[in-house]
């Protein structure tokens, strides 16, 4: 009768119950390899293909991943998104991109100002508070910026003078965790450039 034998893999799985892991640390003599007769010899030395896998932050080239040395000064002008500026922020209710009466009134003032400053362009930056998820907040802030964009266009502002940027919850004005901070962060911010 033929005896049923476990395949090595099956046998290994069956043995998963308990393992001992020991090392030759502090061994009395330097570690030497000995191939015991009847056992498979150790595999030939493998050079770890992914060992010191060229760390991404080594060398000047590599540090350039994703950026060619934009200075902080040039970014401050572009993404400074703080408070102030000639055009006041427009605020939103939680999880909403609907323009309130107050928001419409503010945008109507912006439209008037833009009629008298015909050489400026405006970037509408949509923002969320941090009580939502990353991806959906990016979509929500896109809707918020677009709501202002659409209303300004309906008031006669040339679309070519407007652009939108969605920041989601990635760049809050107020890092606080209060109702007040959240309310300040649910906003469209308007940056003006020549």
């Amino acid at each position: 009768m033929q005896r049923h034998r476990l395949s090595p893999r099956r046998a290994f799985l069956a043995a998963l119950g308990a393992a001992v892991l020991l090392a030759g640390c502090g061994h009395k003599r330097p570690p030497v390899l000995t191939a015991t007769p009847g056992q498979p010899a150790p595999a030939p030395a493998e050079h770890l293909d992914r060992a010191p896998a060229r760390p991404v932050d080594e060398g000047p080239d590599v540090r350039a991943v994703g950026g060619e040395g934009a200075t902080s000064a040039d970014l401050a002008g572009r993404t400074g998104s703080g408070e102030g500026g000639p055009l006041a922020d427009v605020h939103f209710a939680y999880d909403s991109s609907a323009l309130s009466d107050e928001a419409r009134a503010t945008l109507e003032k912006h439209a008037v100002w833009l009629q008298s400053h015909r050489n400026v362009k405006v970037t509408i930056e949509g923002n969320c508070d941090d009580r939502g998820t990353v991806d959906y907040n990016l979509a929500l802030s896109e809707q918020r910026a677009r709501a202002a964009y659409d209303y300004l266009v309906s008031l006669g502002v040339a679309a070519a003078r407007l652009r939108t940027v969605s920041y989601g919850k990635e760049r809050p004005l107020d890092p606080g965790n209060t109702e007040e901070a959240w309310a300040r962060n649910r906003r469209d911010h308007f940056t003006v450039s020549p």
Partner: peptide
């Protein structure tokens, strides 16, 4: 002592190279 599997590791640093078995 109830072990089913024994893993033995040995290492040596020599000539600027680490060898591990």
């Amino acid at each position: 002592i109830g072990a089913r599997i024994l893993v033995v590791t040995r290492a040596e640093v020599k000539g600027g190279e680490l060898s591990v078995e």
